[in-house]
Write a protein that binds this DNA or RNA. Structure first.
Lengths: 145, 145
DNA sequence: GAAAGTTGATATTTATGAGTATCAACAATC
DNA sequence: GATTGTTGATACTCATAAATATCAACTTTC
């Protein structure tokens, strides 16, 4: 039943998400403010979380609590995802891209120009597909093949 | 005068290094125990630091104190350096490499087999050339060109 | 339309990671 | 050979990051 829910469909309210993850709603909003997650937003501005979001958040929790990586550390690690290789932006665009030229926070926390302007970061695979738990290194490997 | 010193020549004792960096000798040994640095060792086992080591340590300090990245975060970031691309190890060797297949600590903290067995990590460019301050992202960029 | 849930903001608590202190054994220096 | 510095190990302190609590204004729900 719970298994039949689509991974990407935002259906859990913040309080339900918090209960499932055994954390507080405040912590969820804090992760968002830090740029670690991008929950879906209803027209009324209320947040909704999908199963994929919950898995992602659990990875972040493990990084903080088990691996003892600070939030700023996680932001820096996310900033190393080779987004330029994933979205295939041009040399010209790279020169002009804040994300390409910095390494303090994830690309999806910047105001976008260029290719990324038309993309919705929540659905972009830089954010959605590759930024969980151990697989950032897998992505770097893949990009250097 | 100080400028004429070779960057790579290990000449500073631990107490001198600590004084120059304005930190304690204990902190220097702690960074080493954590695998962040590899000082030169005399036959008597005493440590010596080169100018390049001091610069590297200053970068680590800035990451901890300014950027607020935890030591475990720095170790994880170091583990993302595409060493496989730098030392050009084979597919076969990669399958068998603890560093390639993990992302918790830098490659130079593992017991080495394969290509790296003959290398001295302190002199290896994975450690020496590319692991300072902001240039890990530069290296990933370079590897994905 | 009353109750339950959400919003962002600010203030506060607490768990712990980074750094320090102390130690006896050993090495270097003059 | 006496002084100064180094080694690793264990125990301790302190600064602060992560998490919590509280708030009034706003939404959703039945």
């Amino acid at each position: 039943m719970y298994d039949s829910i689509d991974n990407a469909e935002p259906i859990f309210s913040i309080s339900v998400a918090a209960r499932l993850l055994k954390i507080s709603v405040h912590t969820l909003r804090m992760y968002e403010r830090e740029g670690l997650i991008i929950p879906f937003k209803k027209d009324s501005n209320q947040r909704l979380y999908a199963k994929a979001d919950l898995e992602r958040i659990q990875c972040i929790r493990d990084a903080i609590n088990q691996a003892k990586i600070s939030i700023n550390g996680i932001k820096t690690i996310y900033s190393l995802i080779p987004c330029w290789d994933i979205v295939k932006c041009s040399e010209e665009e790279r020169k002009d891209c804040s994300s390409f030229n910095n390494a303090q926070k994830p690309c999806w926390t910047y105001d976008h120009k260029n290719v990324c302007k038309e993309r919705n970061c929540r659905d972009c695979e830089v954010y959605s597909k590759y930024s969980q738990c151990g697989n950032i290194k897998e992505l770097i490997k893949f990009s250097t093949r």
